[in-house]
């Protein structure tokens, strides 16, 4: 029983650390209306940069997180450049950056596909030693602190003049351009912020699991979408149960981080029930496909049910 508990604790820890990535995906997918596939590459980029800095340069793990985030920002800028200046469709621009990051990441790790951190101190093990916590507990604390900090920063930023202009770009490009905003620049900013969060998350996960791997970002975008869907459902349920609509931007951001934790919990439970790790990608993809299609299918079904040949008599 305690084995399951420990496994679930580990899942929550992982979920919260990945939640920082989900914040990034939320910015592009929900605010800018772009499905940015850079994510798979920039997540691994964060991990690779972080591991290399700690191993080769003996860098402070906290500083390594910052530099990993900056590297992600650069990756986002590349996608942004391809998309806004060279006018390559967003999905393709993301794929191009993602695929090139695979080579870049291998270069960063000097050709190795995996760098273990072994006994080296990380931010998470440091916090664990300091308070006498298990690695999972330390990860949860560090993850929650960083996620909340990021939510606060994002809440502030997207309330500023530039942040509002970025949100408006996602809603209606024609409108905000007519109001004097360079929409290309706004998308570039959005992609940079998003991918810096994704890389930061990759670096955190690297410090949590104590290794970086060239494949650690595979399927990240799908996990991000799953977490967003779960988070939004949770927010809707919480809203209808307690306090009315939770429309506030900060709530929406916190909800997707929570969604990420729930996703990894579900995943851990499914694994405990006997599904193989190798099947997880299929499981996640099916889950996201269902989650995205259920609203469409119910709307069609309702329209079909509501149809009647004669129509209803007007009551009034």
């Amino acid at each position: 029983m305690s084995g399951i508990f420990i496994a679930l604790q580990g899942a929550v820890a992982q979920g919260i650390l990945w939640g920082v990535m989900v914040l990034g995906v939320y910015i592009t997918y929900r605010l800018l209306n772009i499905a940015d596939l850079t994510v798979d590459g920039s997540f691994a980029l964060g991990g690779c940069v972080c591991a290399t800095l700690i191993i080769n340069f003996n860098m402070n793990p906290a500083l390594a997180l910052v530099i990993a985030a900056l590297a992600g920002m650069l990756a986002g800028a590349v996608t942004g450049f391809l998309h806004t200046v060279l006018e390559i469709p967003a999905i393709l621009a993301g794929i191009l950056t993602q695929i090139s990051l695979w080579s870049v990441n291998l270069r960063i790790m000097s050709g190795k596909s995996n760098i273990p951190l072994l006994k080296l101190q990380t931010l998470i093990s440091g916090v664990g030693d300091l308070f006498g916590l298990s690695q999972a507990q330390a990860s949860i604390i560090v993850g929650v602190l960083i996620a909340v900090l990021m939510v606060m920063v994002l809440y502030w930023f997207f309330g500023t003049e530039i942040g509002s202009a970025i949100r408006a770009t996602g809603y209606n490009e024609d409108m905000i351009r007519a109001l004097g905003v360079n929409t290309g620049k706004m998308k570039l900013f959005g992609l940079m912020i998003s991918n810096s969060l994704v890389s930061l998350s990759g670096a955190l996960v690297c410090q949590h699991q104590k290794y970086a791997d060239i494949n650690m970002g595979r399927g990240a975008i799908v996990i991000g979408l799953a977490a967003i869907v779960i988070g939004e459902v949770l927010l809707g349920v919480a809203g209808s149960l307690f306090v009315g609509k939770l429309e506030n931007f900060a709530f929406r951001l916190l909800a997707v981080v929570l969604g990420s934790a729930v996703y990894f919990l579900i995943r851990a439970i499914v694994l405990q029930l006997g599904l193989k790790t190798n099947d997880m990608n299929l499981f996640t993809a099916v889950f996201v496909a269902l989650a995205l299609s259920i609203p469409v299918l119910t709307a069609k079904w309702r329209a079909k049910q509501a149809y009647s040949e004669t129509g209803e008599e007007d009551d009034t």
């Binding site: 930023f157 309330g159 500023t160 003049e161 530039i162 942040g163 509002s164 202009a165 408006a168 905000i176 109001l179 004097g180 905003v181």
Partner: peptide
């Protein structure tokens, strides 16, 4: 929010509150 975006038409937008 729409009005606030419009009030800043043609001005440079910074990091002050939107």
């Amino acid at each position: 929010e729409n009005l606030a975006l419009a009030l800043r038409r043609g001005q440079s937008r910074g990091l002050s509150w939107g």
